[in-house]
């Protein structure tokens, strides 16, 4: 019986001709006397072969291939046009830059108010989170909705944002606050957990929007790690830890706190599961 269990682990390798020499004999001799294991093995071989004969390799339909090429060419043309204007008319470039600089100064002047700070350039999500954490600590940003636990914030977020907001209950939490903001049409959700030792700030937004990187962006390292593991832990800060994770594959969350990064990650560990 125990032998059958061991054989089960070899079946897939045997089907794909990957068995180590040392295991081949053991496998063969077992299936020659155990019909049940032999049948399991043969059924896998038959399934694999059957599927392979039924599914044939297709080539991309010509019109799709050319449509894709056209799409890319269109993109290229667009890029060149924008760049062309700048290359040909240095004055236009200077004017645009001057306008932008002026515009930013203007925006900063008026926006440097107790609101969540936005800039015109695509902001790095990590920098933004750290900045906002500081603003929460200083009391510059105040939650709009406060509850004893995350469930009391559910309705507040649900009606107003298009991505699922991660609302993870946290142990020993005294209260939890939430506030939404809008960044050039992109919704941002901010959560703050008040714990006995300090606060945990969580910044959340639409993952696809971050991947597009028009408004909020992320470093390549963070994107790769999130794509691969669902997590990204940044270890370069002394006074605080930053942990990022994907929630439901739709929302990217960044938590900032003064607690240890492992502890912070642990706090949201089950959050990545649906």
């Amino acid at each position: 019986m125990n032998e059958c269990k061991k054989i089960q682990q070899f079946i897939t390798d045997a089907v794909d001709n990957r068995l180590k020499e040392a295991d081949k004999e053991f496998f063969q001799s077992h299936i020659s006397k155990c019909h049940s294991c032999r049948n399991d093995y043969e059924l896998d071989v038959l399934t694999k072969d059957f599927v392979k004969t039924k599914i044939s390799r297709q080539t991309t339909p010509h019109e799709i291939a050319s449509r894709i090429k056209q799409d890319i060419d269109k993109h290229v043309a667009q890029e060149q046009r924008t760049r062309g204007v700048f290359a040909q008319y240095p004055l236009a470039r200077a004017a645009v830059i001057a306008m932008l600089v002026f515009g930013i100064a203007f925006v900063l002047y008026f926006l440097n108010s107790p609101d969540i700070q936005n800039t015109v350039q695509a902001a790095d999500m990590m920098d933004k989170s750290i900045e906002n954490y500081g603003l929460f600590l200083a009391g510059t940003i105040q939650p709009q909705q406060i509850g004893q636990n995350v469930d009391e914030l559910r309705d507040y977020f649900q009606e107003r944002v298009e991505f699922p907001v991660a609302l993870k209950p946290v142990k020993d939490c005294e209260w939890v606050g939430g506030v939404l903001s809008d960044y050039d049409g992109l919704s941002l959700a901010h959560l703050v957990y008040k714990l006995p030792g300090g606060i945990v700030y969580v910044y959340q937004t639409n993952w696809n929007a971050v991947l597009e990187g028009d408004k909020i962006s992320l470093s390549n390292g963070a994107v790769t790690s999130l794509n691969q593991t669902g997590w990204y832990v940044n270890g370069t800060h002394d006074e605080y830890s930053v942990v990022m994770w994907l929630y439901n594959d739709e929302t990217v969350c960044t938590a900032v706190s003064s607690m240890e990064k492992d502890q912070l990650r642990q706090m949201f560990a089950e959050d990545t599961q649906e």
Binding site: V76, T82, R83, F86, A87
Partner: peptide, 16 residues
């Protein structure tokens, strides 16, 4: 610098 200046067409060409 606040903004990365647009690069020349060669880059687009090369990327393509």
């Amino acid at each position: 610098m606040l903004f990365a200046l647009p690069k020349n067409n060669n880059n687009t060409q090369q990327k393509h």
